[in-house]
């Protein structure tokens, strides 16, 4: 039997849904469907699309390569200051992305903590480069992967690893043949979330890498720039991003829409 619901509750729930749905409907209704191909094939749009795909995939790769080991250490090793490390790892989740960009400048800018030596010794300049875009995206995306994978490692029955060890498996073999397959679904989910976050990155990117077409102007930055010139182009690019978001949601529907995950 259903519990009777207060009418006010139902009404507010409907307002909330409308609040989320109306902008999306508005976007789709105002999209210049007839000119889509045209609008998206301008050099600026194509550059932004290409740059976004390349940088977000590279950023995702970096989060996997660095994030999985970090998640493992947080889940499996006890050490002093672990709570502090975990807290720091989560900061990019709550930090305004613009501030994230400023912190990146402080560390990797030409006169930053590390950046000055990178520039003086190796001539490497990360801000306002495509590499800087990848860094900004990885910075904001990394926590998503770490918390997803760490959670999976914690929930996993450690005795699977124990069993593998008594069967003579080296730590590397345990990791690759037992741990990794068992947490694979969470790893995929974490990577997709990280990728979606990287793809949508705006604040840290524009602060740390700037907004140079073809070099650092990703899709969200292109949408922002296009708004001042051509509303149609901005909407067309937005529809592309919405499509990607929708695809991510569908691919993760089991986890995010109250399925098994």
């Amino acid at each position: 039997m259903r519990t009777p619901a207060p009418r006010l509750l139902i009404a507010l729930a409907m307002v909330a849904f409308a609040f989320l749905a109306l902008p999306l409907i508005g976007l789709l209704l105002s999209a210049p469907w007839g000119q889509m191909t045209e609008l998206l094939s301008t050099p600026a749009a194509r550059d932004a699309l290409r740059l976004s795909l390349v940088t977000s995939l590279m950023a995702t790769a970096i989060t996997i390569v660095l994030g999985v080991p970090l998640a493992w250490v947080l889940a499996r090793r006890e050490f002093r200051g672990r709570a502090l490390v975990r807290g720091l790892v989560l900061i990019p989740l709550v930090l305004p992305p613009v501030v994230g960009g400023v912190t990146l400048l402080a560390a990797f800018g030409r006169r930053g903590l590390v950046g000055q030596y990178l520039y003086d010794w190796f001539g490497i300049q990360l801000p306002f480069s495509t590499a800087g875009v990848v860094m900004a995206e990885a910075f904001v995306a990394l926590p998503f992967l770490v918390i997803t994978v760490e959670g999976a490692l914690r929930v996993m029955d450690i005795r699977f690893e124990d069993a593998a060890r008594t069967l003579g498996a080296s730590p590397t073999r345990v990791l690759l043949r037992v741990t990794a397959p068992l947490i694979a679904p969470s790893l995929v989910a974490g990577a997709v979330l990280a990728w979606a976050r990287a793809l949508g990155e705006f604040g840290a990117t524009i602060t740390f890498a700037g907004n140079f077409p073809g070099v650092t102007q990703t899709l969200p930055l292109a949408v922002y720039s296009a708004l001042e010139v051509s509303r149609e182009e901005a909407i067309a690019l937005s529809v592309v991003l919405l499509g990607i978001s929708f695809a991510v949601l569908v691919s993760l529907r089991g986890r995010l829409l109250g399925g098994r995950g």
């Binding site: 005795r159 699977f160 008594t166 003579g168 397959p181 068992l182």
Partner: peptide
């Protein structure tokens, strides 16, 4: 000596067979 070098067979309570 770590577990993997002890040459001990271990049968766990609920068997812990690798599900994958």
């Amino acid at each position: 000596l770590p577990a993997e070098r002890r040459r001990v067979g271990f049968v766990f309570q609920d068997y812990v067979l690798f599900p994958h």
